[in-house]
Amino acid sequence: MNRKEFVEKLNERVKLIRTEYAFNQEQMAYILGISKKTLVEIEKGRSSLGWTGAVAVCTLFSESEILSGIFGGAPTDMIIALAFEENEPRYPKTMGGKVWWRILEEYDGYKLQQNIVSQHYRILNQENKRMRASFHYEQIQKQFDELRRDQ
């Protein structure tokens, strides 16, 4: 998945999310910080939330069953993977992937993992700190291979 696909999925379902929360268009537009006219255009497929609007919808409606169905749980990890695809941040320590992750490869304490729901990938270091995250297996595999060569 890329940012464009992510935004498109939300554009297509913003009305369902609004209905799920029992908001009218005026209320939903206010919550999202857009005009009612813009919301109507989005719901009719004539306009788009854009990246920022899509992230806002996911953040504000994080308990949505519609969103859980689209992304296989809370979309936070997916947003982070898409947002930092080109510029990886310094991530805090994780729990090592004991619940939502399967280990694809391990080398010298480094782990290449895949999320069992969203299917995106990450690399953890020996201290279980996230080093990289991506939806692109080839890209993350290349980065994992580079770790091996650097050792």
Score class of each variant (00 low, 15 high):
Lys98Trp: 03
Glu106Leu: 06
Leu147Thr: 15
Pro92Cys: 11
Ile79Ala: 08
Ala22Asn: 09
Arg18Ile: 04
Ile103Phe: 00
Arg90Asp: 09
Lys142Cys: 09
Glu65Ile: 11
Lys93Arg: 12
Thr52Glu: 12
Ile17Pro: 06
Ser118Phe: 06
Phe61Met: 05
Lys37Asp: 14
Thr59Met: 03
Thr19Tyr: 00
Tyr91Pro: 02
Trp51Tyr: 07
Ile42Gly: 02
Lys9Glu: 01
Met131Val: 14
Gly50Asn: 12
Phe6Gly: 10
Trp51Arg: 13
Pro75Val: 14
Arg132Gln: 02
Ala54Thr: 10
Asp150Pro: 02
Gly45Ala: 07
Asn115Ile: 01
Gly73Ala: 01
Pro89Ser: 10
Leu82Tyr: 00
Glu88Ala: 15
His120Leu: 03
Arg148Gly: 03
Ala54Cys: 02
Ile42Leu: 01
Glu106Ile: 12
Ile70His: 12
Glu20Leu: 01
Gln126Ala: 07
Asp108Met: 05
Ser35Val: 01
Leu60Pro: 04
Phe144Trp: 07
Phe23His: 02
Glu12Cys: 12
Leu49Arg: 13
Ile103Trp: 02
Ile103Val: 15
Lys36Tyr: 11
Ser68Tyr: 14
Glu138Asn: 02
Pro92Ile: 03
Leu112Asp: 03
Trp101Lys: 13
Gln25Met: 03
Val40Ser: 14
Ala22Cys: 08
Pro89Thr: 00
Ile66Asp: 06
Arg130Glu: 10
Met1Gln: 04
Ala83Pro: 01
Gln126Leu: 03
Glu12Asp: 12
Ser47Gly: 05
Gln151Arg: 15
Gln119Ser: 15
Lys129Leu: 06
Asn115Lys: 06
Ile79Asp: 11
Leu112Arg: 14
Trp101Leu: 01
Arg102Trp: 10
Gln143Thr: 05
Leu124Tyr: 10
Phe135Gln: 00
Gly50Pro: 01
Met131Gln: 15
Gln27Asn: 03
Thr94Val: 08
Leu10Cys: 13
Glu26Ile: 09
Tyr110Ile: 02
Ile79Arg: 10
Gln113His: 06
Val7Tyr: 12
Glu85Ile: 02
Arg102Pro: 14
Arg149Ile: 01
Gln25Asp: 01
Leu147Ser: 06
Gly72Gln: 04
Ile34His: 13
Gly69Glu: 08
Gln113Ala: 07
Arg3Val: 07
Glu5Ala: 09
Ile42Glu: 10
Trp51Asp: 11
Glu127Pro: 05
Asp108His: 05
Lys142Ser: 11
Lys142Arg: 11
Gly109Phe: 03
Gly45Glu: 05
Leu67Asn: 04
Arg90Trp: 07
Leu49Val: 15
Asp77Ala: 10
Phe61Cys: 08
Glu105Lys: 15
Lys129Pro: 09
Glu106Ala: 06
Ala133His: 02
Arg130Gln: 08
Asp150His: 11
Gln25Ala: 05
Arg46Gln: 12
Tyr107Arg: 06
Lys37Glu: 15
Leu39Val: 01
Lys111Pro: 13
Lys142Gly: 04
Trp101Pro: 01
Leu10Ala: 09
